[in-house]
Design a binder for these strands. Structure first.
Lengths: 199, 199
DNA sequence: CAATAACTAGAACGACTACTCTAAATCAAG
DNA sequence: CTTGATTTAGAGTAGTCGTTCTAGTTATTG
């Protein structure tokens, strides 16, 4: 075999996450190096480029959020309740894991699916598949009349994730705690936004 | 006097705005130079630093939005209607002026009031005064019972501007048009979010 | 016309960053 | 123990960007 690893991939990603949380999206490889204790050579031995490191971090942070959301989605019988609960849960998760939440702001899927390192394009493209399927199911039950409309998923996604994320984003980026009263705002706004589908 | 100016400040700011719209917040002085036709020396003759150029651009874009909002705020008798109209108007303005809207995402006031070039701190600090006063007045009429609560302005500001801006931001940053159906989502969500003050 | 102030013009500089390269350390297998 | 694959280690490289510097240009004023 060979020499055993002194740093796990997750250790390096954790360091990158913390540097992004403190220095923003312009965090440098040198900063990740000192934060993790690994020399730059080791980091480049593990990740082909800074881009790959940050994209992998972004993928990990969003997959972790989705893991949590997929659990919550099944805990409600009423689809509207489930959708509102998903919005509120997103806020809670980001409040509990501010650095992970900061990493989620690094990219947007639509642009990244074209610009990401070649070997990650596929993973980026299918990142939201699980979550979208869930939102599609809940949306179809919430709006039976539009169950076949392809725009339904975008609408639901916007009213739940987009709305919640937009409200908490300023706090996430600033690194300040998300105020608890925001959960109530999100719940009411989300429920009301979802009524547009009834038109 | 001396030689007359070949480039106005606004011309340089326009070029900076367009470069930020196409290249993001990392737009370089060299890009602004070629986009405007002005050599870097001229740009630095007018602005002390790249930071000052971008902060001035940011200030201008937000002041222009506020100019428009201040007009709209007076057109409604009912305070709730006025607040919802302000949220929708923000979306409309950003749809009509996508590059200006992109420039608004360059900074956040809270962090900038500490890190901006010294000579601009004052202007940054008081940037929102006019708008906040209006939101304060409308909020006091909407929630007479909490008229003296200092948290009221933050609540109203979040439910109107924060909510709207969070929903449209993805489109603004991506440079894709803001879909028209979003206006209805914003209106309903904003009205519902404002009901939290009634607790 | 001469003097001067204000600006244009762009080459040059220094700092920083992503990335590479070579050498050494470490561990499993024969 | 020796071999060889794998990783650590960090000095070195090329390129980019913000900024500065010096020279030259244009208009206004007396």
């Amino acid at each position: 075999m060979g020499r055993s690893r002194k740093f796990t991939d997750d250790q390096l990603l954790d360091a990158a996450r913390d540097m992004v949380a403190t220095h923003g999206p312009g965090a440098t490889v040198a900063q990740v190096s000192t934060a993790s204790g690994a020399p730059t050579g080791s980091i480049y031995h593990r990740f082909r480029s800074r881009d790959e490191l940050l994209v992998r971090l972004w993928l990990r942070s969003i997959e972790r959020l989705h893991d949590r959301l997929l659990q919550v989605g099944d805990e409600h019988d009423d689809p509207t309740e489930a959708l509102v609960a998903l919005a509120v849960e997103t806020a809670r998760y980001c409040r509990e894991h501010p650095a992970e939440a900061r990493a989620m702001t690094l990219y947007r899927q639509e642009s990244l699916s074209q610009t990401a390192p070649e070997e990650l394009r596929e993973r980026v493209a299918h990142l939201n598949d699980r979550a979208l399927a869930m939102f599609g199911r809940l949306g179809a039950r919430r709006f039976p009349a539009s169950a076949d409309d392809p725009r339904l998923v975008e609408l639901v996604f916007t009213c739940v994730v987009g709305l919640c994320y937009g409200l908490i984003r300023p706090y996430v980026v600033a690194g300040t705690p998300i105020p608890p009263w925001l959960d109530e705002v999100i719940a009411r706004a989300c429920a009301a936004a979802l009524t547009v589908g009834d038109i």
